[in-house]
Design a protein around this nucleic acid. Structure first.
Lengths: 176, 176
DNA sequence: CATAACCGACCAACTGGACGGTATGTTAAC
DNA sequence: GTTAACATACCGTCCAGTTGGTCGGTTATG
């Protein structure tokens, strides 16, 4: 049996979440999913909350890394890098940050870190973009797509994802 | 004691949802909230799922009514009416359609009607707007705001709500 | 008109299962 | 032999849904 680490558990939790919905994201289900007993799972995460927190942090870190990578290769891309990272996160089926849904369902207070990050991004936009309001609008549209996909309201294969990705990145380029 | 009807129960459920989060949206809590026993509640809704379904339908109906009202007073406002209705729904604290969150948490399949409505709106946009892609983008930005607020990621008093509302409606007017 | 039959709205008590968390091993590495 | 990484077996709670009944009103009947 292959060793299991926290990363594996987070992946497993995301899969359970995707397949069964937030309500059925149980410790038993996650444990079973990654071939662990519940005791073993709780050895890695002391409580369900701490697992959810880790899921959120993992999602944020992924997004941050993707944005940084893009920004490193493109000048003046504060806005574009955020759009890019959101789309990249979406496409990566393995690391779907559905944690959002579960966190909101379980305890809205878990969203504090997201709220903080949100404020930071907006501050940066105000500084670097000609039209911060429009810039924010593009970010919001991206999030609309993002959440629509996470929620299953939009078909993941819908061509609008690639269409709007291009469009949004073009519009972003004009703003910075 | 005042009679209780389905509408009252849906309101009560929305209040519980807003105050305690999706995880604690229980039949007991809803029953207590509207001064009913659980048995009485289940007399009106045969199951929790059917209550959630009704909550969603109620939210959809509200949105539809608001959009229709706006469209009746404005020519060529297929897009604008949708933006208007979303903002109006947001502002109405009594009828917050948090049902979305609860539904996703409980069973993603409950979102089918929303998915269907979504497709219909997009079809209409394609027909009536000069630039359907951009129109959809505006809708998505609106939804980004909407969900951000529902999730508690955005502060309800944030001035961007009114700012972006104006901006979005102006942009919409240029498209149709 | 009286009353029996019925019905919708509602309640209190309960059941069975799910679920988060704990307590207590067991095993293997260092 | 101590610690990390698990497993097994529980416990207490919460919760959806069931059951069996009450009570007020309406309708049908004689």
């Amino acid at each position: 049996m292959s060793k299991v680490d926290k990363e594996d558990i987070i992946r497993a939790a995301e899969e359970v979440l995707r397949e069964k919905g937030a309500r059925r994201l149980t410790l038993d289900a996650v444990a079973a999913r990654c071939g662990l007993s519940k005791g073993g799972l709780l050895h890695h995460f002391r409580s369900k909350q701490s697992l959810l927190q880790a899921m959120l942090e993992s999602a944020i870190a992924s997004e941050e890394a993707l944005a940084a990578e893009y920004a490193a290769n493109h000048e003046n891309s504060v806005l574009a890098s955020r759009i890019y990272s959101a789309f990249a996160l979406m496409q990566d089926e393995k690391q779907l940050p559905r944690a959002l849904i579960a966190a909101v369902a379980e305890d809205p207070a878990l969203l504090e870190p997201i709220k903080a990050k949100e404020a930071k991004i907006r501050a940066t936009l105000s500084e670097h973009c000609r039209d911060p309001e429009l810039a924010l609008l593009l970010i919001l549209a991206t999030r609309g797509l993002f959440l629509g996909r996470q929620f299953g309201v939009l078909d993941p294969d819908d061509p609008i994802f690639t269409q709007l990705r291009e469009r949004l990145l073009n519009l972003a380029a004009e703003l910075e």
